[in-house]
């Protein structure tokens, strides 16, 4: 993974791949910080996209950043706050959250992310995940990734509590079932 300074210079010079690498590097940091602030994954995703589109548009005029991560987080929270107000879900959002800016500690979720692309189980599960019906996968995303409670998922999707629970159960069951079929020699510790 490249150093921030390299990625930032890449952005300034219009190197698309380095720019996307910068995005990939900080996506989850921004995502989980944003999720904690506003609780709406889609709003957060859009705000991150817009922040980076803005950076790309302004690449020729942006300055050298001293602390790339702090800069990204500050700009992102400002953007998110604007979006949030527009969405009129809250009258305002306290965004000048200094806690993020000093050493920018990892969010609990972010620290769970392991980059291990050779992991056989990971690849297998990712493949099975793609075969799930969209609705089931969407619910897994809300539950396990975004960390919504069942009650919140019910409110978000308009499905009944029973349906949400059953669909998640079914999804887990079919993932698990197929894992054991495809991988009879699993060694679990």
């Amino acid at each position: 993974m490249h150093a921030d300074a390299v990625l930032w210079e890449g952005l300034r010079k219009g190197d698309k791949e380095l720019f996307l690498a910068l995005y990939n590097k900080y996506y989850h940091s921004l995502f989980f910080i944003g999720l904690k602030e506003v609780g709406d994954g889609q709003l957060v995703r859009d705000a991150i996209q817009q922040l980076f589109l803005y950076l790309w548009e302004k690449r020729e005029t942006i300055r050298t950043a001293v602390n790339v991560k702090s800069y990204l987080i500050t700009s992102f929270l400002r953007k998110l706050s604007d979006d949030w107000k527009k969405a009129e879900r809250f009258s305002s959002l306290q965004v000048v959250n200094d806690a993020y800016l000093e050493d920018a500690p990892l969010t609990p979720e972010e620290s769970l992310i392991k980059k291990d692309e050779d992991d056989h189980q990971f690849t297998l599960l990712a493949g099975l995940m793609d075969e799930l019906p969209n609705r089931q996968k969407e619910l897994l995303v809300l539950k396990f990734y975004e960390g919504l409670s069942y009650e919140e998922i019910v409110q978000r999707t308009g499905l009944s509590y029973r349906t949400v629970y059953n669909k998640i159960y079914e999804a887990l069951k079919s993932l698990k079932l197929q894992v054991s079929q495809n991988q009879p020699h699993t060694v679990s510790i």
Partner: peptide, 21 residues
Amino acid sequence: LFNVLAESDLAAESMRLRRRI
């Protein structure tokens, strides 16, 4: 499960940004 979903979200969003630029 969390990691697979996180990776899949990043991949989809990264592709979205690439397509847009």
